[in-house]
Design a protein around this nucleic acid. Structure first.
Length: 320
DNA sequence: CCGCACTTTGATAAATTGAA
DNA sequence: TTCAATTTATCAAAGTGCGG
């Protein structure tokens, strides 16, 4: 699923590599969920629709703005007759000094790059301008549209200035909520949720074939992003996570049951018992059977010595 | 000696990671 | 994101140890 989702670059979708603004008449909007490597602001002027961001769907009414971070899966279908602006721009255009991996944008503190605020808060809130604010937004868009159509050596600066004004409009109106969202660590919230979905997916499919792709699809993330996310959140890799759970579960089974090793291997998701043995030894330092023996040894009263063994042989099985 | 359950090993294909 | 380098998974084959 996630595998079939396209990621676009400015090159493919825009006239310029730094900044672009277009309207409903420019080209067919993408109707399927997708991502791109650049920032985007969608502004709805007319026509009720919905915005799909990550795993959520929210109404997108006229006067509303949608701030899309790079590589964020999203989709805003535009029914016929709707009017809108779409602004696209790269990270360098927005903040040439912000030297952060696009995937790490969520970690940037509000104070360091305030212009990112609406993008970060978008997950948890909607932005809508009306009255004078809306008029100003429209004017800014028109100006940017005109500037962009006829560029001069000064154009980029002008465009950036107006873009920042636009972002400023939203920030001013929603300052409280944005700060609250940032303070509450909302940017981490979506991430935690995603992690939770991944963990749940791993738990539920432990016995089956688990791949980064399937987990990513379950969490509505791209495989690459998920790999980064897991690394950042847990310090380990996806495979580590999966293997760890599998081995842990197999230890339980080894101790609690007398199932054959090959069956246990299959139950916890190893298709190949040979490979299971290999990994088990790597993690636990002993082969599965040796581990089981040692565990039994530790739990049961320390009966050994030839004589006692001998005696127990002659006793009934219930000798305890 | 045989067969069974388990382990080890090697070759190879596939998936993941980390750098850019 | 993309891609090369690294890890991991799978398959096949063979070795080990043990009870019968």
């Amino acid at each position: 699923m996630a595998a079939g989702i396209r990621t676009y670059t400015m090159q493919e979708r825009a006239q310029h590599l730094d900044f672009d603004i277009r309207r409903e008449n420019a080209r067919d909007p993408l109707a399927a969920p997708h991502r791109h490597a650049y920032f985007q602001i969608q502004i709805n002027l007319a026509g009720d629709t919905q915005q799909h961001i990550g795993a959520t769907v929210r109404p997108f009414r006229p006067g509303m703005l949608s701030f899309v971070l790079p590589y964020r899966m999203h989709c805003v279908p535009h029914p016929p007759g709707s009017l809108y602006y779409i602004l696209s721009f790269g990270q360098r255009f927005l903040r040439s000094d912000l030297d952060v991996d696009p995937l790490d944008l969520e970690d940037v503190p509000l104070a360091r790059a305030p212009e990112l605020a609406p993008f970060l808060a978008q997950e948890s809130m909607d932005f809508e301008l009306d009255g004078a604010d809306r008029a100003e937004m429209l004017q800014l868009c028109e100006q940017m549209y005109a500037d962009n159509a006829q560029r001069g050596f000064y154009t980029l600066e002008t465009l950036r200035a107006r873009l920042l004004l636009l972002i400023g409009l939203v920030c001013r109106k929603y300052a409280g909520q944005i700060e609250q969202a940032a303070g509450a660590g909302t940017s981490h919230h979506g991430r935690r949720e995603a992690m939770a979905r991944v963990i749940r997916h791993i738990r539920e499919h432990l016995a089956e074939r688990l791949t980064l792709d399937s987990a990513a699809a379950a969490a509505c993330l791209s495989p690459n992003y998920l790999a980064h996310l897991i690394k950042k959140e847990t310090g380990r890799t996806f495979v580590d996570l999966v293997t760890e759970r599998r081995i842990e579960q197999s230890r339980e089974l080894l101790m609690q049951t007398s199932l054959r090793v090959s069956d246990i291997a299959r139950q916890v998701g190893f298709a190949d018992e040979a490979y299971f043995s290999r990994r088990f030894r790597q993690v636990c330092g002993a082969s599965p059977v040796a581990f089981r023996a040692a565990a039994r040894q530790a739990v049961e009263p320390p009966v050994l010595s030839k004589r006692i063994t001998h005696a127990s042989l002659s006793l009934s099985p219930e000798d305890r």
